[in-house]
C-alpha cells in the first residue's frame, strides 16, 4: 500500500431482526499495519469502533471455513486476504451471495448443509470392517485427494450462477463431496445412489461457467466431480438400455 496509511472499509450492514432498516453500507477508517488481513481489520472494527458488527471467524488460518465473504467483488476467506493486496484504499465487504443474510456478513448456511446431507456424505459399507484397516493403495487415496481437501466454506456456493437463479440446485460443494465417496475405493454405495442427482437440480444443472474453481480457496475443482458423475450416470443409462434390449 503506497497511497496513505489508512484504509477505508465499506461494509454492507443488515439485521434480519430489524427488517424495516434497509441493507446499507457503513464506512470505517482503519490504520494499516504490515500483515493486516481483512479478518484482522474486521476484528479491530468490532473491538474498537462498532461492537455490533457481525461476522463469523475461527481458525484465522484458512482451514475452518468460517469466514467466506465477498471482498471487493471476489469471494474469498477473509482471514487469508491481505488488506494491502488490492492497490486501492477502499475495500468493499459484502455477505456471501445465494444465502439469506442473518446479520451483516453472517448468512444462513442451512440450505448449503441441506444439500450436503442430500448426497449421503458418508462412507457406505456393505460388510463390517476387518480387524485392521481396509486396504487402500496410495494411488486410490490420491484419487479422492482434491475432494477430501474441501473445507465446506461455501465460497463455491456463493459464486455459483446456477444457484443464483435456481435455489433447488444442489451446488458445487455437495457434488464434490458425493464424488469424494463415489471415487473412494472403500465405498460400496450402489450405483443407483447417484440417481438422485440425475436431473437439473443435480449434475445436469451445472452450466460449466466454472466460477466455483476461481472461488475455491483450497484448489478443489467441483466441475471435475460433476463431469465424473455425469459420465457415471451416462454409463448407467447405457447399461440399462442394453439390459432392456436383452430382455426384449
Amino acid at each position: 500500500m503506497d497511497r496513505g496509511d489508512y484504509i477505508l472499509l465499506k461494509i454492507l450492514r443488515y439485521d434480519a431482526t430489524e427488517p424495516t432498516v434497509e441493507p446499507h453500507f457503513e464506512s470505517y477508517r482503519v490504520r494499516i499495519i504490515p500483515g493486516l488481513t481483512i479478518l484482522t481489520i474486521l476484528l479491530r472494527i468490532r473491538d474498537e469502533i462498532d461492537g455490533t458488527l457481525a461476522f463469523r471467524s475461527s481458525c484465522r488460518s484458512a482451514v475452518c471455513g468460517s469466514c467466506a465473504m465477498v471482498i471487493n467483488g471476489k469471494i474469498d476467506l477473509s482471514c487469508r486476504v491481505q488488506a494491502a493486496s488490492f492497490g486501492t484504499n477502499t475495500i468493499i465487504l459484502e455477505p456471501l451471495p445465494n444465502l439469506r443474510v442473518i446479520k451483516d456478513l453472517v448468512v444462513d448456511m442451512t440450505p448449503f448443509w441441506n444439500m450436503y446431507e442430500k448426497v449421503k456424505p458418508f462412507l457406505i459399507r456393505k460388510s463390517p470392517g476387518p480387524d485392521k484397516e481396509l486396504p487402500q493403495s496410495d494411488e486410490e487415496r490420491k484419487r479422492i485427494d482434491q475432494y477430501a481437501n474441501c473445507i465446506l466454506c461455501a465460497c463455491c456456493y456463493g459464486a455459483c450462477p446456477v444457484l443464483a437463479r435456481n435455489p433447488d440446485y444442489v451446488g458445487p460443494a455437495a457434488l464434490a463431496k458425493l464424488e469424494r465417496f463415489v471415487l473412494d475405493s472403500r465405498d460400496d454405495r450402489p450405483a443407483s445412489f447417484i440417481e438422485n442427482v440425475n436431473d437439473d437440480r443435480g449434475v445436469w444443472g451445472c452450466d460449466m461457467i466454472l466460477r466455483c474453481i476461481d472461488a475455491c480457496p483450497k484448489d478443489v475443482r467441483p466441475p471435475d466431480s460433476i463431469v465424473g458423475l455425469r459420465k457415471q450416470l451416462l454409463k448407467l443409462r447405457i447399461k440399462k438400455l442394453f439390459r432392456k434390449k436383452g430382455q426384449e
Binding site: 485392521k132 486396504p135 496410495d138 486410490e140
Partner: peptide, 20 residues
Amino acid sequence: VVYEMEHWGCPFSRFPDDTI
C-alpha cells in the same frame, strides 16, 4: 479407534503395502 475412524471413511495416507 484409529481403525474405527478408517472404517468410517477417514482417508489416511497410505504405505506401499496399502496400510495406514
